[in-house]
């Protein structure tokens, strides 16, 4: 039961590169490397500190299931996916956009052509690396991931989401069009490791996998997600190569839970932001390299906290700016 606490020197979280510049065949003005750390989060300095974590703002192409609190906040942007994505980078200060194709969740979805168009639109509107989430329905996976992957070819986006019983389509698209993959498993270190092995056996290189150990939200099983992330980081630094990958955390239920949903409209933004912040901040402390939120106000709060945690550990330009410059 008791695991050793101290990382073995030399073990590192694998580095995953996201985004591609013109020179690399893409159009991004910034690209990121995530991972690389040889210590627990925010404890290292120099190379052992790895690369700084990134904050992603989640947007979607079909707002019917999106939180009304966020929709109120972003107003007309919600109707224009490209503009929403652009604002995420410029107005709201996110490091990257995570685009969810919520449209694919409606019954009998078959407008596959729209996926490619939207991807192209968002690529055109943004300058930073992207995360793109495809379908949740195995029956259409193959077509959805092909369209998305193809439209984003060359941009090295982070493609979501591979799961233990449906990873082949995502992996195939990532292999064909040069993307990285989010590997999500339900809050269990063993399942996370298993999926990495399964993906490895599809020939997807390990440096193109980001682990998502799944986060519900604060107060709803968050303790499990938190500990699974800590544990993954811990065994990775002990030398478990299958788990030495960067992690992504998105507390996806944050804005749906009773506490937030039923908050007084006056304070709803405040509650939503705090709920997202406490989960995302804790995920950073547990070892997440990419944290995703939906309320623009949470981004600023996280940015400040991250700055205080990184103080002195990274060169200024890498921590806050354009790493490829």
């Amino acid at each position: 039961m008791s695991e050793e606490h101290n990382p073995e020197p030399g073990n590192r979280i694998l580095e995953v590169r996201l985004g591609a510049t013109k020179a690399e065949g893409g159009t991004r003005e910034r690209v990121y490397t995530v991972g690389g750390a040889g210590t627990f989060p925010f404890l290292g300095a120099g190379p052992a500190a790895g690369h700084p974590p990134r904050i992603a703002l989640e947007i979607c192409d079909d707002t019917r299931t999106w939180s009304p609190i966020v929709l109120r906040e972003v107003g007309d942007l919600a109707e224009d996916t490209g503009a929403w994505a652009a604002a995420a980078e410029t107005t709201f200060g996110a490091d990257m956009v995570r685009l969810s194709f919520t449209s694919t969740r409606q019954r009998g979805f078959d407008d596959f052509a729209s996926l490619g168009t939207t991807v192209e639109e968002v690529i055109g509107a943004t300058k930073y690396p992207l995360i793109v989430e495809g379908s949740t329905e195995p029956a259409i996976d193959s077509e959805v991931y092909r369209r998305i992957g193809e439209a984003a070819e060359g941009e090295r986006v982070l493609l979501g989401t591979a799961e233990a019983d449906r990873y082949r389509s995502v992996a195939a698209s990532a292999l064909a069009y040069g993307h990285a993959v989010v590997a999500q498993t339900p809050i269990d270190i063993n399942l996370a490791k298993q999926l990495n092995i399964l993906l490895h056996e599809t020939a997807l290189p390990p440096e193109r996998i980001v682990i998502d150990p799944y986060t519900g939200t604060l107060g709803y099983g968050f303790e499990y997600s938190y500990s699974v992330m800590e544990r993954i980081r811990s065994v990775a630094l002990q030398g478990d190569a299958d788990l030495a990958r960067p992690m992504i955390s998105s507390a996806i239920d944050s804005l749906n839970v009773k506490e937030v949903r039923e908050a007084d409209p006056e304070t709803a933004d405040e509650v939503a932001i705090r709920w997202e912040f406490y989960a995302a901040f804790s995920a950073l402390i547990a070892g997440a390299e990419i944290v995703c939120v939906r309320h623009p106000g949470t981004v600023a709060l996280l940015r400040e906290a991250l700055r205080a945690l990184l103080e002195g550990s990274h060169p200024q330009e890498e921590a806050y700016g354009d790493e490829s410059a």
Binding site: D188, I189, N190, L191, K193, Q194, I197, D242
Partner: peptide, 15 residues
């Protein structure tokens, strides 16, 4: 439970 989950793989999660 941990051992069980890691054994729910062929042959085992820890290869």
């Amino acid at each position: 439970m941990d051992q069980y989950t890691s054994s729910c793989f062929l042959p085992h999660t820890d290869l």
